[in-house]
Write a protein that binds this DNA or RNA. Structure first.
Length: 502
RNA sequence: GGCCCCAUCGUCUAGAGGCCUAGGACACCACCCUCUCAAGGUGGCGACACGGGUUCGAAUCCCGUUGGGGCUGCCA
């Protein structure tokens, strides 16, 4: 911690793809840190790589942060808008002799590395070929940083402690591209300077680049005749997949948007993310205020963490059940009754199959009845782990016919010789009995006893005939809401579908 | 290959020398509850990578080995 000065931290993603859960975790720890100690979270969009940036990715970052309740205090600032500062820094560095122009191309460098290796010199990377050639700057010539050959750079990391990087293994890295555009190492350092960033909290994958930034920072101080304090660094453990490899956009489900579509609650998602590489202590599911209160960078884990969707889902179920029924109804609306002018699932497609990840609402919008949904909301709420599971549980209420699942039909009706008799008995009994949950329960219990089986077994054919599946909402609550006429009509339809008794 | 990081149940972690016959959570298994499915309850399975030190005493400190990972781009 910088003494008595409120920290300024930045979250600095590059808009080159969907918002990654690893980025979300980095953002969260930055957010925790400033909420805990007071300070400012700056959002900086690192968009210097024009070829890979797209405006919609920036939109995605901003909306995902807002969804997770961790909107920045400042920004977004765009790195591309810092052009002037970058140019000034390049000039200063050039004047100070910290940079030199390099005319080498990749193939030449690789060839020299190969030759060197064959001669028994394992030093990798650029060999300093142009370092003392005194080449002029010019189109196509990159600018390299003159790294010292001796000694080492020490990074004092808030989570990892002191890490030493020997300079002899650090090549003269490129700061400025042949077209004059600054590269990550430079732009990042310059922006941290102009934005007076006090703490850099980011993924461990950036740890190896830190010595370059430390070197650059010192060179900039000398070139500009200033003495800006280096930010404190904190490198967070990586998020990995089942194989222990860094989460990749290509093969792992890493897009935060994907989780939102499936109906993970932002609070649950955020709570789960907090536990990846950090622990609040005895309990895991805690209000965000408690998480903030307990958060300490020193307690952050050093080893990588596996992103476990099963545990996330468990958390989500707990959060869903903790909602009041009306909160649950509100939260579920985009999945059952999407409004055209509001966020709704369905925009996300599987990159491999191009299929929507969340199926469209299975009923005609006009058939949806909010009041009816309200009546089954409480029993639905207890049964889902993600909100996108809701439609399949309540579809029988809003479909014209019972949405019969074939496997269920085979198992509970076609494959059960007592099914026709039970259905017939139910059809008769349901014509007369009072239409409420308790009456339906006792009437059906009588049918079961007459058939000589337990209620659990006897209700199955009725459930499938009316609701379509062997598993689902409690039968009698469901029938009560569906209504006598529709229930009986569906039982009749099921009976009619059965082949005539032999 | 070079540089760097990491190492407690399958997974996320608690543990900052004695409180540890290592605690919790997820997952898994069994039982209970029960109109299905869930939820819930109870119980169970299950780990300090290995080898050396240091110490009266080590999961905790040091060294080594092994294993895993990251970086090594005119991407970030």
């Amino acid at each position: 911690m910088t003494d008595a000065v409120a920290p300024r931290v930045r979250f600095a993603p590059s808009p080159t793809g969907y918002f990654h859960v690893g980025s979300a975790r980095a953002a969260l720890f930055n957010w925790f840190f400033v909420r805990r100690w007071g300070g400012t979270l700056v959002l900086r969009i690192e968009d210097t790589d024009e070829a890979r940036n797209r405006p919609e990715w920036t939109e995605g970052i901003i909306s995902a942060l807002a969804w997770l309740g961790m909107a920045p205090d400042e920004g977004p600032h765009f790195q591309s808008a810092q052009d002037e500062a970058h140019r000034a820094a390049i000039e200063a560095l050039w004047e100070a002799g910290a940079l030199y122009a390099c005319a080498c191309i990749r193939e030449e460098i690789d060839a020299r590395v190969k030759t060197r290796a064959a001669a028994g010199d394992p030093t990798p990377g650029y060999d300093g070929h142009c370092r003392d050639l005194g080449l002029a700057r010019g189109e196509g010539r990159a600018l390299r940083f003159r790294t010292p050959d001796e000694g080492s750079v020490r990074v004092d990391d808030l989570v990892r402690g002191e890490v030493d990087f020997p300079l002899r293994a650090l090549e003269d890295f490129i700061c400025v591209r042949g077209d004059g555009k600054p590269l990550f190492a430079l732009a990042n350092a310059v922006d941290d300077r102009t934005m007076t960033i006090s703490h850099v909290i980011r993924g461990e994958d950036l740890l190896p680049t830190t010595p370059r930034q430390v070197l650059l920072w010192g060179a900039l101080n000398r070139a500009e005749g200033r003495d800006l304090a280096l930010p404190a660094y904190a490198h967070l453990p990586l998020l990995v997949n089942e194989q222990g490899k860094k989460l990749s956009k290509r093969r792992d489900p890493v897009a935060v948007e994907l989780y939102r579509e499936q109906g993970y609650l932002p609070d649950a998602f955020r709570n789960y993310l907090a536990l990846l590489g950090w622990s609040p202590g005895d309990e895991e599911i805690l209000p965000v205020s408690t998480l903030v209160e307990r958060f300490r960078l020193d307690d952050v884990q050093k080893s990588p963490a596996f992103f476990d969707v099963k545990k996330l889902s468990h958390f989500n179920g707990v959060y869903i059940r903790a909602l009041s029924v009306s909160e649950f109804i509100d939260a579920t609306r985009p999945w059952v009754d999407p409004a055209p002018d509001e966020w709704a699932p369905g925009g996300w497609r599987d990159p491999d199959t191009d299929e929507p990840v969340v199926s469209p609402v299975p009923w005609a919008p006009a058939r949806y009845d909010a009041a009816r949904f309200g009546e089954v909301a409480a029993v639905t709420q207890e049964r889902v782990t993600v909100l996108s599971e809701v439609p399949a549980l309540v579809d029988f209420l809003f479909q014209e016919e019972a949405p019969i699942d074939e496997t269920s039909w085979q198992k509970a009706i076609a494959g059960d010789e007592a099914a026709p008799a039970i259905l017939a008995a139910a059809l008769a009994a349901y014509a007369e009995c009072p239409w409420d949950k308790d009456a339906l329960h006792s009437v059906t219990l009588e049918i079961a006893e007459a058939a000589g089986r337990k209620l659990g077994k006897a209700q199955a054919p009725i459930r499938v005939a009316v609701m379509g599946r062997t598993a689902g909402l409690p039968l009698f609550d469901s029938l009560a809401v569906l209504g006598r006429d529709e229930t009986r009509r569906r039982i009749e339809a099921a009976l009619a579908r059965l082949p005539p008794a032999a």
